[in-house]
């Protein structure tokens, strides 16, 4: 119980840190968002009165009005009410509405692709570590190439081959938006088919780039674990190689991969955000990019918050799972 409480407390602290960073960054950075928007409006030929400034400031959650502490309370208050402000570029659509539309895309894509990459990478790592010097093991240096490839570049390459040279997969979007009859997003077969078809290249990008990391980590841990005495004992007992490999070696070797999940997930999320831009995939990363290029501050803040919360939730899940699989982590708490 202590273990679970500790974990939950830690993630609460991390959550609070993300909230506070989200509050502080716009206020501490040298650029003043209100002035930037005012300057844009002035450049467009609109007249600027002090009331205009005030209106913009209110829209941005009261930046530059009142003391920092009172702004902070106001910020937390609006967060509790689920209010992330109104998007500037898509005025007057609420940020939460935009994020609600974008989040399922990213979570499904990144989630599924990460699970596929994890399972494939771990299995390959087990095999490579078990048979040192085999073909698979010698492939490892080649695999590092994919690990070091920027996601967005791999996306460009996949598009070059599979959309431009051989027109197999679509260029962009999350589903066919110009199809007839019109495809309505939801649990219906035409939409799912279209979404899977459009998601194939983005998913392939994530899997190809992230599989190497899992495989390498697992292979190295497998090699280290296999030289433990209990493996020798297991073999001496005459257990089948399969049982030694999976139940004795792999089960222990996979633990560092899980406890290092936060680092790996950070890479995947960072890569996916930029990658979505390449595919114009209607997820969170694409929204973040649109917000950045339009100076849409409320949307940008909201996106950062949602990404942070999603990453924290995924890490919490893995941490709790780790406690379930490995009793030692619970005992250590």
């Amino acid at each position: 119980m202590r273990f679970y409480l500790q974990k939950i407390l830690f993630y609460l602290i991390a959550f609070w840190a993300a909230l506070t960073l989200n509050f502080l960054i716009p206020r501490m950075m040298p650029g003043d968002p209100v002035s930037i928007i005012v300057m844009k409006m002035a450049a467009a030929g609109q007249t600027i009165t002090p009331q205009t400034r005030h209106a913009i400031s209110v829209q941005l959650g009261g930046i530059g009005e009142g003391s920092l502490i009172s702004q902070y309370w106001q910020y937390l208050g609006s967060l509790i009410h689920g209010d992330l402000g109104v998007s500037i570029a898509n005025y007057p659509v609420k940020v939460t509405t935009i994020l609600q539309g974008a989040l399922p895309w990213t979570i499904t894509l990144v989630g599924l692709a990460t699970i596929i990459a994890f399972v494939l990478g771990i299995s390959l790592g087990i095999l490579a570590g078990w048979k040192r010097g085999s073909f698979l093991d010698n492939l490892i240096p080649v695999v590092t190439f994919f690990q070091a490839v920027p996601y967005f570049w791999l996306a460009l390459i996949l598009l070059l081959f599979f959309s431009r040279t051989w027109q197999i997969f679509p260029f962009a979007q999350g589903y066919d938006t110009v199809a007839w009859p019109i495809i309505v997003p939801g649990w219906n077969w035409p939409f799912i088919k279209s979404a899977v078809y459009h998601g194939a290249l983005p998913a392939a990008t994530i899997v190809l780039s992230s599989i190497a990391g899992w495989m390498l980590g697992m292979r190295n841990m497998m090699v280290s674990t296999l030289s433990e005495d209990y493996i020798l004992t297991a073999e001496a007992k005459g257990l089948t190689p399969r049982r030694v490999r999976i139940v004795y070696a792999a089960r222990n070797a996979v633990l560092p991969s899980l406890s290092g999940f936060a680092i790996s997930l950070g890479f995947v999320v960072a890569g996916s955000i930029v990658m979505e831009t390449v595919f114009s995939y209607p997820g969170i990363g694409f929204q973040l990019w649109k917000a950045v290029s339009n100076n849409d501050y409320p949307l940008m803040q909201g996106t950062f918050l949602v990404i942070s919360v999603a990453v924290l939730a995924a890490n919490l899940l893995v941490d709790l799972m780790l406690g379930l699989i490995d009793p030692r982590t619970r005992a250590r708490a």
Partner: peptide, 17 residues
């Protein structure tokens, strides 16, 4: 470690003129 780095970098970089 658990706060995603690149989104944070993007947000910070965008606030700097």
């Amino acid at each position: 470690l658990v706060i995603p780095g690149l989104p944070l970098t993007i947000v910070i970089a965008n606030y700097v003129p």
